[in-house]
Design a protein around this nucleic acid. Structure first.
Lengths: 336, 336
DNA sequence: CTGTTAGCGCATTCAC
DNA sequence: GTGAATGCGCTAACAG
């Protein structure tokens, strides 16, 4: 029953040699048509499935790429994964997915697993707690290229696809300004992330150019956990000079923060207004959401990462020829 | 640079044999402590990582299990996956995840990939369009056990962990009844799924026992796509005898349907009330959601599936000793 | 305590 | 057109 069937099984059953079976299965034209047919028929009826470990050992390639994302439940990442899968699938690669749950140790374990499995390449969106990159450097030793996307590392040269929030956030600040809002705070993500940097820089420059004041009190970071977001928003709300608007790192942070705002009896879009990033489909169903959100096109980010990786894989000499792709953002204003 | 380092590399560098290195790396006490130390030091500095394909070929086990779910973005499935990962991780297994996107062909491809990769076991939640199970039967030939969870097959003997919605749905019907609601329709999932069956049966029996009338018009199925849900709900709303309440297959179906209801100018919880399944955390942020939802405890479903699979793996003679685990449900009523 | 040998399943080179 | 032989990286039985 559970007898494994290999090319040998087929060979001896047909009274031919394993190498002939191997060649027949690959459609090698040197093998007689008749033999090929007999082989594939038998293979089918015996339910033969080639052992990829053996194949890999021989050919030193797996046609498999690992994907590590912070989590799977955020629509942002599932859309990103869809983009990766679609592009890679078209090129004959299988994507296998792992989540770090925003925990660097889990991320390390996942990378370790993929390294042992000798995936051909890796696509990573960093965990919020990742502040060292040794586990990625090791992959280079094995010639396994890594493409970072969205959550990309700081000060670590690499292939990357990032979202530029600049355009979207600029429009967002102007939008708030035109609504008469002047006091704007930033509830940012973890400082390790390039995306936090970009939000901060764009915020600072935008505020400056709009001639608006800000202060260190107005700039806080959450580690993206619900708990920390609650702590941070509570401190912001307690400021004697309470902001009229808050720019949240992403829609989830905004939703968590808005819950607190409402618990405190404040009125959304009157006492305080939220602007955030991601523009997730699920927020369609949410009434008390951010007034506007910067669309980042996660599917495109994923598919660009897939293309980038595929490019590197088809031209291995490029492995240190690091490139960066940028996906632009657009501000989406919700109906009130 | 990209020179692969194997146990041979280490062996020749240290002037010892590959098998000694292999044993040392496994912490075999028969190898001298000093040798073990030298080996692990060198392995570390050379960035040695064992090749799991080679190991697998030898030991015929991968310590890897495949997980196939319909999608990753529904919190239900990401919680289910978290349950699987936690249990399996504790037992030294790595879960690798794939999504079918509710498409049987994709599901088949994923299963095929896992079969080639010779995962030790498989955990599956069926795609909404899956109506044949040949691709799972093939796994049995290779002694790879499959555990179905939540979306389990009909008429196909197997290991399964399912959610019993009976208790929750019964409470739900009574809850609606006590609110004076008499006309209750069912917007069910695809007929292939056991969970659709259970919802239907419980609905029919509950209606009967409450002495409420129903009719074929009141019972519809959606394939879970947004488009089909919209079509179905529109037809329900056009009935001359429009229901006062609708039981939706899950929270997502409910949210999609509610959007239509509001577009038609109907008032939620007055003209029409929704009850659904899953009780997802995200609905915390949704004001116009179902009035109540049957909590199904997806994390528990996942962890039970992990335990069940782990049990079968540690006792291979059990491979046809099919068992079913049931996770009970509870009605959660939302504050209005 | 350590080395030698063989083989897991497959693809490939070299024979014929 | 087909077969025999070899080796990918690793482990395990058998020797010493």
């Amino acid at each position: 029953m559970a007898e494994t069937v290999t090319i040998k099984t087929i060979a001896s059953l047909l009274g031919i040699s394993p190498s002939t079976v191997s060649r027949a299965l690959q459609g090698n034209p040197r093998i007689g048509l008749r033999t090929r047919e007999r082989v594939s028929e038998l293979a089918l009826s015996l339910n033969y499935v080639s052992n990829s470990a053996a194949r890999m050992l021989k050919k030193n390639t797996t046609f498999t790429v690992g994907v590590v994302v912070p989590n799977l439940h955020e629509e942002f990442f599932s859309l990103l994964i869809a983009g990766i899968e679609d592009v890679l699938g078209q090129n004959g690669f299988q994507a296998i997915i792992s989540q770090s749950r925003d925990d660097m140790e889990r991320e390390k374990k996942a990378v370790e697993h993929f390294l042992r499995a000798r995936v051909d390449g890796l696509i990573v969106s960093l965990s919020a707690t990742t502040n060292e990159y040794d586990h990625f450097q090791r992959l280079e030793r094995y010639g396994i290229p890594v493409v970072f996307c969205d959550r990309t590392p700081k000060g670590f040269p690499s292939f990357r696809v990032r979202s530029s929030v600049e355009a979207g956030l600029r429009s967002g600040l102007e939008f708030l300004y035109q609504k008469g809002i002047r006091k704007i705070a930033l509830l940012n993500g973890p400082p390790y992330l390039l995306s936090s940097d970009e939000r901060l820089n764009t915020y600072l420059r935008g505020m400056y150019e709009l001639n608006l004041e800000t202060s260190p009190n107005y700039i806080r970071s959450t580690d993206l956990s619900k708990e920390d977001t609650i702590t941070q928003i509570e401190e912001i709300l307690q400021l004697e000079n309470r902001p009229e608007a808050i720019i949240a790192f992403n829609d989830y942070v905004a939703l968590d923060a808005i819950k607190v705002v409402k618990q405190k009896g404040l009125v959304l879009n009157k006492d305080i207004t939220f602007l955030s990033f991601a523009n997730l489909p699920i927020t369609d169903h949410v009434e008390n959401g951010p007034i506007a959100s910067v669309e980042q096109f996660p599917y495109q980010i994923g598919s660009k990462a897939g293309e980038l990786l595929h490019g590197v894989l088809s031209c291995p000499s490029d492995i240190h020829n690091y490139r960066e792709e940028v996906v632009d953002s657009v501000l989406k204003i919700r109906g009130l």
